[in-house]
Write a protein that binds this DNA or RNA. Sequence first.
DNA 1: GATCATGTTGCACTATATGTAACATCTTTT
DNA 2: AAAAGATGTTACATATAGTGCAACATGATC
Lengths: 226, 226
Amino acid sequence: MSTGKLQTLERGIALLRLVSQSPEGIRINELAEQLGLNRPTAYRIVATLVDQTMVRRLEDGRIVMGVGAYQLGARSSDSIQMLARPVLETLAQATGATAFLSMAEGDTCVVVMTAEPRDAVFNIHYKLGTRHPIDRGAAGIAILAARPETPQDSEDIRFCRANGYSVTKGQLHKGAVGVSSPVQLQDAGLTGLEFSIGVVALEALEITQAAKAVPDAARQLVGALS
Amino acid sequence: MSTGKLQTLERGIALLRLVSQSPEGIRINELAEQLGLNRPTAYRIVATLVDQTMVRRLEDGRIVMGVGAYQLGARSSDSIQMLARPVLETLAQATGATAFLSMAEGDTCVVVMTAEPRDAVFNIHYKLGTRHPIDRGAAGIAILAARPETPQDSEDIRFCRANGYSVTKGQLHKGAVGVSSPVQLQDAGLTGLEFSIGVVALEALEITQAAKAVPDAARQLVGALS
DNA sequence: GATCATGTTGCACTATATGTAACATCTTTT
DNA sequence: AAAAGATGTTACATATAGTGCAACATGATC
């Protein structure tokens, strides 16, 4: 193969992905099978990744993610935030409300980044790192709406799926209104990362306007990340 | 080479590391130079990693971390927390105080995980994701103490470096006492990831006991992560 | 005590990654 | 405006690096 992709590296990353999807750990045999490699090959990839602290082996041989991967992720979040920053700023300006980027983590929804409008007299300060149950608040609803339909989906979720944005009033805080859209990274071939972007404000929020600006911002972000 | 490590994969990870240390992006030429590869080789590695969304290329060619890396990191944090959990639980039980794991992020210090003592009447609830300036509070001080000495180091930092743990009273909250130790991952060959572990309690905290238990927990955690 | 599952190493083969050289753009210099 | 320099990218021949087979080691299961 002259130019093009490096097979060994591709396999290594693929293996890393598989490990990351197995919080309880995964065995070499299973890795080999799932990736269509033979055992020795999988073994060598694992050995290399262990050496680099990207994965670790538990006492019984199971393989789990390592500190190195965590480190890379922490650093790359900076890079992502650099991209998201302008989108959030614009959104905050356009709507006059506090813009946020949230992310699913298990059954909770975490605030990853926020931007506040420059020239508003009052605005909501949405604390970084705040967690809510994923089924409450506009951000979580938007993320749920991006998942495959289920019969138990709430009214809010179905609304969001149909219209491209969620609206919630007072679900997280009395008097607070939120509008949010999923960041559809699946469209860009990314699965397993669930973000939503949106705005939150006092009841004065102009929903009609936000209902345009928010999905727009979501699309922009997908573009920027792909 | 019969057994042993896979060169291509090693190089790929090394490259990924370098990129992660360059928030503003890095050029192929520089990657090649720093890693001792020739340009085509670096190019092929980058092409492969781009394909896997581990890195992205900016319009002008610079290379930055991608969403894939973020994803892996997010997942591996679960795995790390699984390891840290028992250490924190034990620490909380032993001291009767709320135990925490914190991490440096720029010039702030973030609470990553906590454990509360089972049978205490009162205990402090330390909110996940809380951020403080890194130079205030026991956790941040401990992290600073693990860094190379500087002339500007505060009294608290020097104390921690000398004794292996930091003690602060009321720096973050009136009446709250914190004891913390750095998680010395450098010893395990990991650089760039700065954690500290510790406890926080009302003034009643038995500092002598905590001063033993906390550094101990830190050592355990280093062992578990390496 | 035999069979199976899992982790690990040796070895011969060749597919895979490599380095050299060359080409394509795009800047900067003269 | 041509020339020289960066930078990104592709072609091709070579040999090194990765592969698969087979075998061995260990522990679990029957």
